[in-house]
Amino acid sequence: MTAQQQSNGTTATPAESAGTRTVRFRIKRQDGPGKPVRWETFNVPVQASSAGSGSANVISCLQWIAANPKTTEGKDSTPVVFDCGCLEEVCGACTMVINGKVRQACSCLMDDYAPNDGDEVMLEPMSKFPVVRDLFVDRRRLFDTLKRVKAWVPIDGTYDLGAGPNETPDDQQDRYRLSTCMSCGCCLEACPQYTLEDDEAKWATSFAGAAVISQVQYFNDHRTGATLKKKRLDEMSKPGGVSDCGNAQNCVQVCPKEIPLTESIGKVGRAVTFHNIRKFFSGS
């Protein structure tokens, strides 16, 4: 709003005097499920960043393409379909594969990825989820798996029943870190054990992945949440559970929220071990 409000005022912002550069976007496109894949390139003018305007990012460039959908060959194209929401890396929507690595498009700044004129940026949809169109994928499997592991605190309803359990600041900090998971799917995209599964019927037995395992830990760690602990650990013992983890630990490397996913996996692994030994000897 700065520059806009200013343009009616007296002073000029320093941002507007700086130059622009061209960034070439190579984008993997697909008109729908089962449709052929094609690559298109777009030249996008990018403003040199300043404190007054901030750096351009992949989103602002995709928005520019939407308004000017012409490829570098001069062919008329269509706006690139992509998913986005908050644009400040808290909603998880705009996750895609940029230059071969998964991340959020909003926090992908052109200053870092394409600092020079003519630099190229490659965009692809996530490969572990079915493509809906272009860069937009269907991540329902992730939410479906959260249902499977009962990722909630089973409260007795919204009645006025007083406060929840007290907890120490340290425990709160541990839970808080896990609670910042925005279900973006980066950890799943980077996981060699998590593979594309188009068939919804198979989701129930396909690998849950780090995001969900970490949520299991999050809810097992809450005093009321723990009332469903056994059920969650049963689920984690089944095909697709924690033992399908291959310990490549890519998840923790790519997590944009720096959630200690491998610690969650270790904790759930331990809980599952004890749970099953107990079950073996006591039957429940």
Binding site: G100, K101, P192, A248
Partner: peptide, 24 residues
């Protein structure tokens, strides 16, 4: 059987852990 459930992606994610995973 288990190894066939995964798909190595070392080219994109050349982290040490991933290398160990593929090597395993």
């Amino acid at each position: 059987y288990y190894a066939r459930s995964g798909k190595s992606n070392l080219a994109s994610y050349g982290y040490g852990g991933n290398l160990r995973y593929s090597l395993q």
